[in-house]
Design a protein around this nucleic acid. Structure first.
Lengths: 190, 190
DNA sequence: ACCTGAACACCGTTCAAGT
DNA sequence: ACCTGAACACCGTTCAAGT
């Protein structure tokens, strides 16, 4: 069965799978469901991603690269603008589909992942922390690189926790905002 | 096949299942693996917990009650003693088995849960927040009940995030401690 | 009351077979 | 190069059958 020339099974698989993992997790991801949604057979997905481990690695790798591409321009902007854009990145996941951050979701399921995918999870956190360090340095000019990194890490981890728990409690983006407000008020996010 | 009089399949199932979910998640939990570890057939587990949904609900419900039982005595102690005991609760999960908090793990997998289990997830957070409110009130005597609750929620969510991410990064209890240190230094955890 | 074997429709994976 | 049908051992679930 021929497909349209502009239809790429590999790209379609990654798009659908990323959202599916964000909604239900990696362990709940089904090659058959994926294939049905795309309009191919599950064996076709295996042709492009031989095992779920390959798909997992590719998903997180692309997620990391998308973050870089999308957030690098904000390193030229002010601290406030950059942080606002960063928080929006988390907030939009609540819109309608109630997605979890892919990095946080697969962190929960790390025991199901092989080393290549685990390395991408580490790259994910490293990418966020590096970006946050650069942004934090704009405001906290007297902090050491180590202190900036600790602070960046604490912000990332706290935001992932807020996302994880708000979603688990059935909350929405307003509930997420409320927790972020408390992070701000106590001094973590500033 | 007769079992020892003091052997309770229901209790054994919950004990083994709780640790298994903390390690690998609810979706990765297998009735057959569970049964094999306990020494019965998977149909036997279904006799006690007809569906995984029933087991999920029971696991979180017991987790909530265990927290109450274990942490209520600390409400009589000082702020510092109580917080130290609370942090230890998170830290011990890293010892050897690298477990995630059951409440946080099942929050990630909330899309796989039915309303009864989801309600227990809400009870889980409510229990922690209520306990933290009481402890925080010892130190912050001028804060309103609402402000105490916001702060309690922020602490719980941030600690769950630290646990989630440190585990995802392949970190240990020392890495967790380091993040907690930053939470303290920035003013969230105080 | 408690446990089990066997069946059902699912799952990821493999592979020979198609185009 | 890309796709698929069919098979394999897994999964949760059901239920008649055992004790």
């Amino acid at each position: 069965m021929a497909k349209a020339a502009d239809f790429d099974v590999r790209e379609a698989t990654m798009d659908v799978a990323r959202v599916a993992v964000q909604k239900g997790g990696y362990n709940a991801l089904s090659y058959r469901d994926l294939a049905a949604e795309i309009g191919v057979k599950s064996a076709t997905i295996h042709y492009h991603f031989p095992t779920k481990a390959d798909l997992a690695e590719a998903l997180v790798a692309r997620y990391v690269e998308d973050f870089q591409k999308h957030m690098e321009p904000y390193l030229e902007k002010s601290f406030d603008e950059a942080i606002e854009a960063y928080l929006k990145l988390f907030k939009v996941a609540f819109d309608g589909t109630n997605r979890m951050c892919l990095g946080g979701m697969m962190s929960a399921e790390v025991s199901a992942l092989l080393p290549p995918a685990r390395e991408q999870i580490v790259r994910f956190a490293a990418g966020h922390i590096e970006w946050l360090k650069t942004v934090l340095a704009k405001k906290h000019r007297r902090l050491s690189a180590e202190a900036l990194e600790d602070r960046a890490r604490a912000i990332l981890y706290a935001l992932e926790g807020a996302m994880l728990m708000v979603r688990g409690q059935g909350g929405d983006d307003a509930a997420f905002d409320s927790v972020v407000g408390t992070y701000r008020a106590t001094g973590l996010l500033a």
